[in-house]
Amino acid sequence: MKGKVHKYGADVNTDVIIPARYLSLSEPAELAEHCMEDIDKDFLKTVQPGDIMMATTNFGCGSSREHAPLAIKASGISCVIAKSFARIFFRNAINIGLPLLECEEAVDKTEAGDILEVDLSSGKIKNLTSGIEFTARPYPDFMAELISTGGLIEHTKQRLAGRRS
């Protein structure tokens, strides 16, 4: 995947990713229309399919609303790279198939607007603007398996099928 970077700071919380006033919506496309609007009015005007969201620490803190990763994914963002993620957001994103990568160095050495190329299986991140390459922290085995089966629902389907057979 390849895309332009939209960069944010620390503690980007779920209330700004998708404000509660829109939580009576649950269709991802409708949610995406309001993604980040309280902290970045330009995001929705400039985001292109495949773009990459980047932030420093504790991305996605706050509520458990799965609407947050759903909105980000439906806005066209292909993956989020941060120094660290809040716990519930991390689970939710993995469960719904929004890839997340943890890589401090990439965050420190990337500017907003840079073009990145990301290879999820190897965790390699290449900044095509500056030419620098980074490697993200690998997923623990269990999580890699969850991702490769296509998220938690698929994983659960397979487990239940296994129990029955």
């Binding site: 509520s63 458990s64 519930i88 689970r91 939710n92 469960n95 719904i96 938690l152 659960t156 239940l160």
Partner: peptide
């Protein structure tokens, strides 16, 4: 709901998750 952690006051292990986690747990 993220504030599920409230029940720790009773000496329970209680934690918030997302909707998909809850869906899977409701099945299994």
């Amino acid at each position: 709901d993220s504030h599920t952690c409230t029940y720790g006051a009773l000496g329970a292990f209680a934690t918030g998750m997302g909707s998909t986690d809850i869906a899977a747990a409701m099945a299994t």
